[in-house]
Design a protein around this nucleic acid. Structure first.
Lengths: 250, 250
DNA sequence: CGAGCTCTTGACACCAATCAATCCGGGTGG
DNA sequence: CCACCCGGATTGATTGGTGTCAAGAGCTCG
């Protein structure tokens, strides 16, 4: 069962509306949904207004937060694309994930109490910044919100576990494309035509492959007629066969 | 900063005590700690009694839960060792983690709403079973408990991300040993002398290495004087050098 | 004592990394 | 407008780390 109302705001709608009757935050933010379904009063929603902060725009290359910064907040992507990267002791970069509109960055900072990674913008991005102490105390009053946070964490856990699986390079790349396509679709973009905002190096780093390997596999998938690729513009031509490949990584 | 009071019970102490003044659950269960520090009343703790269920013993090879079972509860290991394994579409086993006393299994079932893996006992195990709906509604009344759950999830996220990193086999194995040693130590066992309850195959599967590779690396680490190993009995001889190796995987 | 494991050790194969040479596209400056 | 430059992307040749296959050793249990 997919996450029905992700912890997001919809960048295509108006931010923050109070029509007197229902207080809505960024129109479609899951918080308000969580409140309504649980029959919560407006005070909780007003608290939500107080704790949230719209930040951005951040330009490509800018940091949203840095590794070892104290963990204070989580960031819901309103628009744009972000990557998170950590550096292991010998300075090797490790891309931990990519995040598109509607997704939440920074949850992995809860436990160590500092961000374990840098969040770097790939495509001009806007965020909703939620103070974590505030949102978790609010979550205590709003079961729907608490549940949402649990599910977000658990979902990210599942994604990372999939990434950790050992699969041949071709399968990893196919799974990456299927996943990215689904997430773009979920954020309101076309699922079949997508723009890769990250370099081959980033993709390879994320998938634990050399960038050359990613390049080779893109051309192989193209030769097999599964995708069309021109630089960073990608089109999925045969989603079924691609998905069949990717399924081996589930 | 390590998790101060993990979501556990201490198997070495008496289970469930009510001395009239303070209600304690399994004596040192983090829940009671979470309650006390937040000044919670006994009613919350009594709820905890109601929702918890002691289950076990499970013998080696038995399932605690199975993949695709509906997600109903999380399990705190009171004693013993468990592994979680998923099967990808072509039937390949993937070990997702090992869990020792004091750790919690099943959190990754929250999002998909069913367990994504089988939990199989490696060494006779006892659990506290917490109904998840119940514990999360209780968490709404106990911020300390809510925080604990968030941190558990976030911690597991970090561990999986580390596993997903690409590092040479020797580093993976060293990191595995250091991690396991620390976790055994946290659960009250000696950190330097430890019994591997899992086969080389399981270790290799977990680390995404062939079991033969694990074997070879154990002997290499032995030849370098870092460990002493006899079957599944392992002693860490030079924790510093081993840790230095493992650090490359951070 | 043999059966059936797991573990170890060796020989070899293969996938993906590395090294290296272009190629391409988009800025920049003349 | 065109030449130049530079980072990213592609493609090829080669290496190397692990996986695979196979044989044998050690252990436990019936």
């Amino acid at each position: 069962m997919p996450l029905k109302t992700p912890l997001i705001v919809d960048p295509r709608r108006d931010p923050m509306v109070d029509d007197g009757d229902t207080v809505r935050f960024c129109s479609t933010c899951a918080f308000s949904g969580a409140c309504h379904e649980a029959g919560y009063d407006k005070s909780a929603l007003r608290d939500l207004h107080v704790l949230v902060e719209h930040v951005g725009p951040f330009r490509a290359g800018e940091h949203v937060f840095r590794a070892r910064d104290p963990f204070k907040a989580i960031y819901a992507v309103r628009a744009g694309v972000v990557k998170t990267v950590s550096f292991d002791t010998d300075g090797q970069e490790q891309v931990q994930g990519f995040y598109v509109a509607g997704e939440v960055v920074g949850l992995n900072g809860i436990y160590p109490d500092h961000y374990p990674c840098n969040a770097i913008v790939l495509e001009t991005a806007h965020f909703c910044r939620f103070s974590f102490p505030a949102i978790s105390s609010l979550a205590a009053r709003m079961p729907g919100l608490q549940q949402q946070l649990f599910r977000l964490l658990s979902k990210e856990l599942g994604m990372t576990a999939t990434l950790a699986g050992d699969h041949p390079a071709e399968v990893r790349v196919a799974a990456f494309l299927i996943d990215l396509s689904a997430r773009f679709a979920a954020s309101g973009f076309s699922g079949n035509t997508l723009h890769l905002s990250m370099s081959r190096t980033d993709i390879g780093n994320y998938l634990r492959l050399a960038s050359e390997t990613v390049s080779r596999l893109f051309t192989r998938l193209r030769d097999q007629g599964l995708i069309r690729i021109d630089g960073r513009q990608l089109e999925i031509l045969d989603a079924n066969r691609l998905r069949a490949l990717a399924r081996q990584a589930s």
